[in-house]
Design a protein around this nucleic acid. Sequence first.
DNA 1: ATGCGCTGTTACAGACTGTTACACATTTCA
DNA 2: TGAAATGTGTAACAGTCTGTAACAGCGCAT
Lengths: 250, 250
Amino acid sequence: MLSTGSNAHSNFAAVAMMKPQLETLDELFAAVPRETLDVGAGLFWEGDRAQHIFEVSEGVLRIFKIIGDGRRVITGFLYAGDMVGLTLRDVYLYSAEAVTPVKVRRLTKKAFQDAVEHSPELRPRLFALMCDEMAAAQDQMVLLSRKSAEERVCSFLMLTARRMQGNRQLGRTVQLPMSRQDMADYLGLTIETVSRTITKLIARGVIAPNGRHAFDIAKPGKLLALCGDGDSYEEIGERGAKTRQAVWPH
Amino acid sequence: MLSTGSNAHSNFAAVAMMKPQLETLDELFAAVPRETLDVGAGLFWEGDRAQHIFEVSEGVLRIFKIIGDGRRVITGFLYAGDMVGLTLRDVYLYSAEAVTPVKVRRLTKKAFQDAVEHSPELRPRLFALMCDEMAAAQDQMVLLSRKSAEERVCSFLMLTARRMQGNRQLGRTVQLPMSRQDMADYLGLTIETVSRTITKLIARGVIAPNGRHAFDIAKPGKLLALCGDGDSYEEIGERGAKTRQAVWPH
DNA sequence: ATGCGCTGTTACAGACTGTTACACATTTCA
DNA sequence: TGAAATGTGTAACAGTCTGTAACAGCGCAT
């Protein structure tokens, strides 16, 4: 069942206001006690009244929607430092569950809104955060709309590699704490296709398994090329020089 | 043709600031002269320095990204009243082109930011706008990730039907000003699949063609059921009662 | 009116991914 | 320890959607 962990969300709500000038959104949450979520536990569900904003302080969260006949779409994974539940609607538009043991802090929506409304420092930060979220959503649309299974898996590996290491130069190892099913539901594939694709990448020596939920990136250049983003410098793929079709803006 | 009541405001460029309390984002743009875009003309391109925010006052715009080998993903269509270019980044993250003849008004990003920063009325409206955009993006992810070709086309018809009529009770006719290729690039399908799917819907009497770029919705209930959203009251589809599989939140 | 070009439709073969099934590994619990 | 439950890997088959192509409809120019 869903034990929301220790729900000691005592009313530290307004305490955040005591510091006259908060400079980062992090600081807003700093004074609030942390709550713990077990693996698989839900933080909130799609349709719940949206009364709190959360900050992940440890662990990984998945946010997802479910449509009629049980199909699940994971719209994102959230890591330490990310915020959840940011919406003006009166209900949450998605559900949030713990992929790993998670620690979060919560603020009432009202407290959060007041704090932002009264701090000229915080507003642009919130705005920037939402812009980043939007940019990520659009990248995901590109992935889901036009990328092959292999490109999706490679993109996910690259994205996760960058995020896990706190955006520092991507390390050689990627941790994938979520299950294959989670990956499939995030990438718009089936679990088998994810599995096959990973197997193929290993066989080609692009990545090497490092336990069940981690991979060493053996050929970062090739992995990047396989993402299908066709960025700036076109990597020399193994399917020959792409024709670099003129972008043809109508 | 889509003509919103054209109230010929003439050039009062920066006058917007004179009114002490703006109440809607529309009013911000009201004083700016309108610019015209021909069909197919670009408003800005992905990677351009993002110096302006635009409001569509007439016509339809498509916003899209292009990846390496020419694949195009349309991330949205914008109608009268929508805003474009809203980002804190210093470059646009997508391109914008006119699907129909378009009229827009522009504000420099700085002017826009200042206005919002100084108006407690405007800020929540902007926030709400971005939340709506985020919600739309997530719905699109669901569509691209887990919906069949038929569900995608039906969802698009419903969405467009609602938007075109200015959100009033959905009329019987849907205008689709964009090309089949645009629809395909928005829905993550090929032009042929879009065409075939539409043909099938016509054959089944769900919709009826009304010129090349418009359809009459003959069976709104069935169209809604075919969207695959499995909402609240489960419509009685033609594939029998779905088993309403328990949502099984892990 | 005729021809050209663009958009949209239809048909068919084929590819990629999904479906189904089963084997194996790991963990949990009796 | 063993059995059940869960997660994962592999394979054969099937299905949807795609890619290619030819054709039809419409607008526009010669």
